[in-house]
Amino acid sequence: MSMLLLAEQILNGLQLGVMLFLMAAGLTLVFGVMGLINLAHGSLYMVGAFVAAAVAGATGSFVLALAAALAASAAAGALVEVLVIRRLYGRDHLDQVLATFALILIFSEGTRWAFGSFPLYLDIPGWLAGPVTLPGGIRYPLYRLALIGVGLLVALGLYLLISHTRLGVRIRAGESDREMIAALGVDISRLYTMVFALGAGLAGLAGALVGAIQSVQVGMGEPVLILAFVVIVIGGIGSVRGALAGALLVGLTDTLGGLFLPWVFGHYLGPSAAAGAGSALASMLIYVLMAGVLIWRPRGLFGGAA
């Protein structure tokens, strides 16, 4: 196995990781502040990808497409929060699961109705296309490198937002004591809508960014949503730092596992059997990681003691 391949796979793992972080950050914020488990987060990811593909197709501008995706998914998030999600905060998790599952059905079939069943394609813009040569002679797609950059920038922005702004103070206050900040005169329902829209916007942005390297289709959001759940379980619910650590861990485990396991098995089994067993086991690796974290620290790496 060459070092170049390994370096490339590590970069791929980072890229998957930062995109998972964009998803997981919204989920974990919404859970931390409002105590809501939101299965429809993947639908907002899908909305972002579809809006980006449609806008890019109509205008030809990728930047405009990203901005539209961010705005549309944040708006969709705010709308859903006001219409449905708001009624779920006081309910138990079962009601939240069912209502947000219903939202998935509505979003998915609505999108299928509006855009048809065939996947759309979102092209990488010319100025981000093609490979770049990194130090050490690694040739790597510029677009994927840009994804890593954007993801890390968003992580930094989120950190600054939460630790250095008024909104961030309220978010943190909301996480530790909802009744108290409402009593102190903060408009709690506006805060909730904003947090939900923020999470939705991040999910939509992730969908639009990933949409350019995968096909844009109905049902694209849920596999990512479930991976984001694994990230949150590993990182600890409600912790944005945990979400970042968990996302990178999951991204790297998934890509490196797909590389190493077939190779390890190749030493013991025939090549085709090794590829089969290796890829089947590699697909389970992140869940094994999750199980390990559960045994070691049931509340996640960065989870509180509560």
């Binding site: 479930i226 759940f229 379980v233 619910i237 089947a280 590699a282 697909s283 869940y287 999750m290 559960l294």
Partner: peptide, 21 residues
Amino acid sequence: AYFIMITLAFGQMFYYFAVSW
């Protein structure tokens, strides 16, 4: 919420295993 997410994730693990086996 942890329990919900974890059972969902383990379910997905079996799904991917069946797809790639």
